[in-house]
Amino acid sequence: EDAPSSDDLEQFAKQFKQRRIKLGFTQADVGLALGTLYGNVFSQTTICRFEALQLSFKNMCKLKPLLNKWLEETDSSS
């Protein structure tokens, strides 16, 4: 699987934040939901840093598919 470019990540982080707010979730909600869904709880700080593009590139790449999946799950259930 190709690693996303930093442009991709930036684009995704923006879209993710907009969708999250529109769906009415806090950063902490998302962190907990990831724990429920995938067994990895993320702190509010981590989600905040992801949205602000302040995580390392490697961590951004790791989180992106999880957050993407969460969006898909959340979209389909709302």
Rank of each mutant, 00 (worst) to 15 (best):
S56F: 02
N68T: 14
A3Y: 11
G31W: 04
L37G: 07
S76M: 12
Q11D: 13
S76T: 14
F12I: 03
N59L: 10
E73K: 08
F25M: 07
K58D: 08
V30E: 03
S5L: 14
G24K: 05
F57Q: 12
N68M: 13
R19L: 03
F42Q: 12
D75A: 12
R19G: 04
N59W: 08
T46G: 00
P4M: 13
D7P: 02
L66F: 11
G35Y: 06
A3Q: 15
Q27H: 15
L71A: 05
G39L: 01
S5R: 14
L71T: 00
T36Q: 12
A3I: 15
L63P: 01
L71V: 06
Q44F: 06
K22R: 11
F25P: 00
S43T: 11
Q15W: 07
A52L: 07
L55H: 06
A28Q: 08
Q11L: 10
F42W: 08
F16A: 01
D75Y: 14
G39V: 01
P65Q: 04
L55Q: 02
A33G: 04
S5H: 15
F16T: 05
P65A: 07
F57I: 07
S5Y: 11
R19N: 10
L66R: 04
C48P: 08
F12D: 00
Q27V: 08
L32T: 08
P4W: 13
E72K: 11
S77C: 09
R20L: 03
G35N: 15
R19W: 04
K58V: 07
D2F: 14
D75P: 15
S77P: 13
L9R: 02
L23G: 03
L53T: 06
L34Q: 01
L66W: 06
Q18Y: 01
T45G: 10
S6W: 15
M60K: 10
T74V: 13
L53P: 01
W70C: 01
G24N: 03
Q18A: 13
S5M: 14
N68R: 10
A28W: 05
T46A: 09
R19C: 10
K64M: 11
E72F: 04
S76V: 12
Q54M: 04
M60L: 07
E10Q: 09
N68Q: 12
D7M: 09
L63R: 01
V41T: 14
D29W: 03
A33F: 10
Q11A: 10
E1L: 14
E1Q: 15
N59S: 10
D29P: 03
K22P: 00
R19I: 08
L67P: 03
L66D: 01
Y38T: 10
K14I: 08
E10L: 10
C48Y: 06
F16L: 03
K17E: 01
E10M: 11
K69W: 02
L55T: 01
L66V: 08
R20S: 01
G31K: 02
D7N: 06
V30N: 07
K22D: 13
F12V: 03
Q54E: 12
Q54T: 09
V41S: 13
A28S: 07
F42V: 13
F12M: 02
A13L: 00
D2K: 15
F57A: 09
K62E: 10
W70I: 02
S5N: 14
L63F: 09
A33N: 10
W70N: 01
Q27R: 04
G35F: 08
L34H: 00
C48L: 11
E10I: 04
Y38A: 09
D8M: 12
Q27F: 06
F25L: 09
F12W: 05
L37P: 05
L34E: 03
K62Q: 08
L9I: 05
Q54R: 08
